[in-house]
């Protein structure tokens, strides 16, 4: 027979599980509250994205303002396009802004450094679906070494 005590304890068990899910969802995976409806999308074309991955951070002066939504290759000119999902609360970046792929620390993750452009009297603001034209690609170690050797030779 199912006694009241059993029912109570099984209920507690369920609540405990829900608390665990809540902790995992909100505190660990940061899911839920920042849904896609509260962000807008920008596109940026790079020559080389290096080790950038979906869900990498987009930072302005170290503050995370969004994430890399996805990365795909433009079929026309074969350059990678990065789709950025920027939080709705930062919706007034001028269209002169630039983005660069940077690395946190020597061996760290790669992220997108977002450099807001200068705002003049009547700035055009980046809106949902815009392309950011001013981009700086990731530094690839082999290219750097190649450049260094080349410039030394020419001296």
């Amino acid at each position: 027979m199912t006694t009241r005590k059993t029912e109570l304890l099984v209920g507690t068990f369920v609540v405990l599980t829900l608390l665990a899910v809540l902790l995992l969802a909100l505190k660990v995976a940061n899911q839920g509250l920042s849904g896609s409806d509260q962000s807008y999308t920008l596109y940026a074309k790079f020559d080389n994205i290096g080790g950038l991955k979906p869900r990498s951070a987009v930072k302005v002066g170290g503050v995370t303002v969004g994430r890399v939504e996805s990365i795909y290759l433009d079929q026309d000119d074969f350059t990678p396009v990065v789709v950025l999902s920027i939080s709705e609360q930062y919706n007034n970046f001028p269209d002169t802004s630039s983005v660069a792929i940077l690395t946190s620390g020597l061996l760290g993750e790669q992220y997108i450094g977002f450099q807001p452009g200068f705002a003049f009297d009547d700035p055009i603001v980046l809106a949902d679906g815009d392309f950011i034209s001013d981009t700086k690609s990731a530094l690839v170690l082999e290219d750097l070494i190649g450049q260094f050797l080349f410039s030394r030779d020419s001296n």
Binding site: K27, V28, A29, N30, Q31, A57, T64
Partner: peptide
């Protein structure tokens, strides 16, 4: 939070 993904990991 930056690393753990809900659908992939959890």
């Amino acid at each position: 939070q930056a690393t753990v993904e809900w659908d992939k990991d959890v």
